[in-house]
């Protein structure tokens, strides 16, 4: 059995394998597939709770992944952000001495989540400029502006 603690290197090697089979486009095709077929819980949470759904989703995953992060939610301003001080996944890959991380490993976080959030009416920005140090920042903004806190409903007059 591949332990869930060994998944990240398996994921990185999968990207390498796919690129060897069909180039980078093949890797992106897989990320799109995984977004469509595996992120239903994120989609459902955001559909029901709006930006708070992001908070609920990443509260679960980032704590289980023992990430070093600051997460902020301002529903009135319509903004959710994660500042990743040390990504556990990229940190693990960088710490491995005998396996090189897939060269574009961190971009999966762009494709996977953008593909869920943008069709639901949100802007999704991720800054991967420091991902070689296991640091990044993602921001999700409600295109319609703020919402009534905790309801996922748009505030009156917000569009």
């Amino acid at each position: 059995m591949i332990s869930c603690k060994e998944f990240i290197p398996a994921y990185s090697e999968l990207f390498r394998y796919l690129e060897e089979r069909g180039g980078h486009d093949e890797v992106v095709r897989f990320w799109e597939y995984l977004s469509d077929n595996f992120l239903g819980n994120l989609r459902e949470l955001v559909e029901e709770h709006g930006l708070r759904g992001c908070w609920m989703y990443w509260s679960h995953t980032l704590n289980e992944e023992a990430a070093d992060f600051t997460m902020e939610l301002d529903e009135e301003a319509g903004e959710f952000s994660i500042t990743m001080h040390k990504c556990p996944s990229k940190g693990m890959l960088l710490a491995l001495e005998h396996v090189e991380p897939y060269h574009d490993y961190c971009s999966h976080c762009d494709t996977l989540y953008r593909r869920v959030l943008e069709p639901l009416g949100f802007e999704y920005d991720v800054d991967l400029s420091e991902c070689d140090q296991a640091r990044c920042r993602l921001v999700v903004r409600d295109r319609a502006g703020g919402r009534e806190p905790g309801t996922g409903n748009r505030q009156p007059g917000s569009g």
């Binding site: 998944f7 980032l62 992944e65 600051t70 997460m71």
Partner: peptide, 23 residues
């Protein structure tokens, strides 16, 4: 409602995310 903030260090949690099996 003010901005809600969650601040965590790696040592605050055990690393065990079984949903990775599903991925």
């Amino acid at each position: 409602m003010p901005t809600e903030v969650m601040d965590r260090r790696a040592a605050d949690n055990e690393y065990l995310h079984k949903d990775f099996h599903g991925a």
